[in-house]
Write a protein that binds this DNA or RNA. Structure first.
Length: 471
RNA sequence: GGCGGGGUAGCUCAGUCGGUUAGAGCGCAGGACUCAUAAGCCUGAGGUCAGUGGUUCGAUUCCACUUCCCGCUACCA
């Protein structure tokens, strides 16, 4: 797996912001980019690389890509005039402009625009219209989720104009090869990060060979068009294979009300993490947000999630089984010799669904994944309840099997939860004296992963319950 | 204005290629138990599946219209 993220550091917006603070743009970007790299640590992301568009490796790739497009006659020099919004990084036509109190602004975004008239290179986007439509049709999952595909298709069907891909009005960006007074357009620059991180144009290197075409570009829905229209067109023009899928995810909203600390509907992830911890937040987002749609976050629902799912269902299951094993199985993994049908129903749930789980996760159906885990948790708790091992003290074999089965359930569930709540699972695995390196997906199909006789450790409470305020 | 998505239990959402009593989680009420973070388990209350009309033996599911929300897009100007 190669999980790439990074920062786009291009453009007039940044140049001006840096000037305003009276710092060098590069220094300014260093600082901003660092906050994102810090954030990726704070959120415990597992990205394998972090690319910045100001890095040399990136610049070289972008300039090479430009040359390829030029070589294939997809770039021509012309002149552009129009209203430009710095903050939107977009041009607008006369019709898209409103004037208010002598200030001209884009009707759609309300951001101020300025008249720009300059020489510009253009990309022959119009030329790729049919091929794009054709590609969408042949690859129905290319634009996901499906609900967003139509709007892209209808946009392309509406007709594509050639795209201005260079600017002369500012200097903070990657220079056009052999035309250093031009700076390369932001989206041609930024999107290229996907292949610059894989060392394109060196297509024979291991990274590129192994990870291109990428299996998915996971992006916010607001930049879907750039990823599903412009980027594929650039790639087609440069004769580079297209990524397999563009997935536009939704946004996290804070209920109907605006964020306000006094109202208690805080939205800043850092605040939430400080109050509740990182893993509960990660869990909440995965569970409560219907992936692909916008989702709401509320403190109340987050607290419910922590208490019900994490503390009561998962945390308490770990506690009750390990505490029982400590008292009745001399703190070690008991023998598992005699599974009966009830035990096997539990354990086979994972075996039987391994393929389905993989398929769904490959389709970004995260909600299926989490729902599977939750139902397994319910069943595991019910199983332990119904089997009443505390009444089986005169039937040691049966008691042992119940405990073994329950431990295996905890183990399987924990393995599956690892991508969602990694640091909590790291703690949970101490029950079995395992570390996260032991986690492998295939083993959730096994029934005898835990070795009889190995020690079982009772662990600290994984998730403390939140005392809810009455209202 | 056009295109697309959506309006299902108090809340967040599944689902129905048309078919007997519409599902889950949370929340709420009651019960039995006690290994456990007063957790877990069982039972229950709660829905005219946005509205109207149509097709059909039968529609929440198909069609039309209406209404509300969201996204994209266009225009009036």
């Amino acid at each position: 797996m190669h999980f790439l993220t990074g920062t786009d550091e291009h453009g007039l917006k940044i140049q001006r912001a840096a000037e305003k603070k009276n710092v060098d743009p590069q220094a300014f970007c260093d600082e901003i980019s660092q906050t994102f790299r810090d954030l990726s640590k704070t959120l415990n992301l597992s990205n394998t690389d972090f690319i910045r568009t100001t890095e040399e490796r990136h610049k070289k790739t972008v300039q090479h890509l430009w040359s390829e497009l030029e070589k294939n006659d997809d770039i021509y020099l012309s002149k552009y005039s129009g209203w430009y919004s710095v903050s939107d990084e977009a041009f607008y036509s006369d019709e898209e402009i409103t004037e208010k109190e002598n200030i001209k602004m884009a009707t759609a975004s309300g951001s101020p625009v300025e008249w720009i008239e300059e020489e510009s290179y253009f990309f022959r986007l119009s030329k790729w219209q049919d091929e794009l439509l054709n590609y969408y049709e042949k690859n129905p999952d290319f634009i996901s989720p499906k609900s967003r595909k139509n709007e892209v298709v209808s946009f392309v069907k509406g007709g594509l104009k050639d795209l201005s891909i260079s600017r002369k009005a500012f200097s903070w960006g990657i220079k056009v090869p052999n035309s250093p007074d031009h700076v390369i357009y932001v989206w041609l620059d930024a999107l290229t990060n996907y292949i610059s991180a894989l060392n394109y144009p060196d297509t024979d290197n291991t990274l590129f060979k192994k990870f291109w075409p990428a299996s998915v570009h996971l992006i916010g829905k607001d930049i879907l068009r750039f990823h599903s229209v412009y980027w594929p067109a650039f790639l087609m023009a440069a004769k580079i294979p297209l990524p397999k899928k563009i997935y536009g995810h939704g946004w996290i909203l804070s209920g109907d009300e605006k964020m306000s600390k006094s109202k208690g509907n805080i939205l800043d992830p850092l605040d939430i993490i400080e109050i509740y911890g990182l893993d509960p937040l990660r869990y909440y987002l995965i569970k409560e947000v219907s992936f692909g749609n916008d989702g709401n976050i509320s403190q109340d629902r987050l607290e419910d999630c922590i208490n019900s799912d994490l503390a009561n269902n998962y945390g308490n299951l770990c506690q009750r089984v390990t505490a029982f094993a400590e008292k009745n199985c001399s703190s070690s993994v008991p023998d598992n010799k005699e599974f009966n049908d009830e035990d096997l129903v539990m354990l086979n749930k994972f075996t039987d669904n391994l393929t389905a789980i993989r398929t769904e996760i490959d389709n970004q159906n995260i909600n299926y994944y989490i729902n599977f885990i939750i139902s397994a948790l319910f069943e595991a708790n019910k199983y332990f309840n119904d089997q009443e091992p505390w009444k089986k003290k005169d039937d040691k074999n049966r008691l042992n099997t119940i405990v073994y089965t329950s431990l295996e359930m905890i183990r399987k569930i924990s393995f599956m939860l690892y991508p969602i709540i990694p640091s909590s699972i790291e703690k949970a695995l101490k029950i079995f004296n395992l570390n996260v390196d032991a986690i492998n997906f295939e083993s959730i199909a096994k029934h005898d992963y835990l070795v009889s006789g190995k020690p079982i450790k009772k662990i600290d409470i994984l998730f403390k319950k939140i005392e809810k305020k009455d209202d």
